[in-house]
Simulated assay, not measured.
Amino acid sequence: MKIVFGFLATIILIVSLAPFSYASDPSPLQDFCVALNASAVPVFVNGKFCKNPNMVVADDFYFSGLNKPGNTSNAVGSNVTAVNVDNLPGLNTLGISAVRIDYKPNGLNPPHTHPRATEILVVLEGTLFVGFVTSNPGNKLFTKYLNPGDVFVFPEGLIHFQLNVGKTNAIAFAGLSSQNPGVITIAKAVFGSEPTIDPNVLAMAFQVEMNMIDSLLQAQSD
């Protein structure tokens, strides 16, 4: 009987802990842990140091500016305004952040991943064509056209994108399940790394001629 009870207790413990094991960020152990700018401290932690709670003020939980359009005068025609632990210290340990994304007509938020967060996107203005690709070996593509009020979810770590297919500017807001979700833009990471990945590796990986790889490397460096 003790063996059976112990086995059941173990199963219950595993099930109860399962949701936490999949969380992007650790759960807080106190009301808040406002991030302290401690870049000069020669200690590295997985997150940010906590500000003295007695020194915390309302502005530590406040950010202003998501009402302002981002500058889309760039090569891809989009701009991401992020609100994360780096500019809103009260987010530290809370496992959430937000972004505003502006797109000019034909503007693209290029294929990228958030290694530490799931993203939920809400369209405010315009029409977006969005999608994500599943992991190996399937690499299945899921796409959807979104209009104002529509919502779409990009699972954690998967490559995804948004393209403005309308004739006017588009605006979207997104929430992410990490205080610091991170961004890996695929083209920039592969063709714009420092130092550069060996062109022979890239040519073999993409199964293209070396001159095409040279052109892509040059384009990223410009």
Score class of each variant (00 low, 15 high):
65 G>R: 07
66 L>W: 10
68 K>M: 12
71 N>D: 14
71 N>Q: 06
73 S>T: 02
77 G>I: 00
78 S>I: 07
79 N>D: 08
79 N>H: 15
80 V>L: 14
84 N>S: 08
86 D>H: 13
89 P>Q: 07
90 G>R: 11
90 G>H: 09
103 Y>R: 05
103 Y>Q: 04
103 Y>E: 03
105 P>W: 02
107 G>Q: 05
107 G>L: 05
108 L>G: 02
108 L>E: 03
112 H>D: 00
115 P>G: 07
115 P>C: 06
117 A>P: 03
118 T>P: 03
125 E>G: 00
132 F>I: 04
132 F>L: 04
134 T>F: 13
134 T>P: 11
135 S>T: 15
136 N>F: 11
136 N>K: 12
136 N>G: 09
137 P>F: 03
139 N>W: 15
140 K>R: 15
142 F>H: 15
142 F>Q: 13
143 T>G: 05
143 T>Y: 06
145 Y>I: 15
146 L>V: 13
147 N>C: 09
147 N>M: 13
150 D>P: 07
152 F>H: 05
152 F>P: 03
152 F>D: 01
158 L>M: 13
158 L>A: 06
160 H>Q: 02
160 H>F: 11
161 F>V: 05
163 L>S: 00
164 N>M: 04
165 V>E: 03
167 K>L: 11
168 T>K: 14
168 T>W: 04
169 N>E: 09
170 A>C: 01
171 I>Q: 05
171 I>P: 01
174 A>C: 03
177 S>K: 09
179 Q>A: 12
180 N>K: 10
181 P>T: 09
182 G>D: 02
184 I>M: 04
186 I>Y: 00
188 K>Q: 12
190 V>W: 02
194 E>P: 05
197 I>L: 15
198 D>H: 14
201 V>K: 15
202 L>P: 11
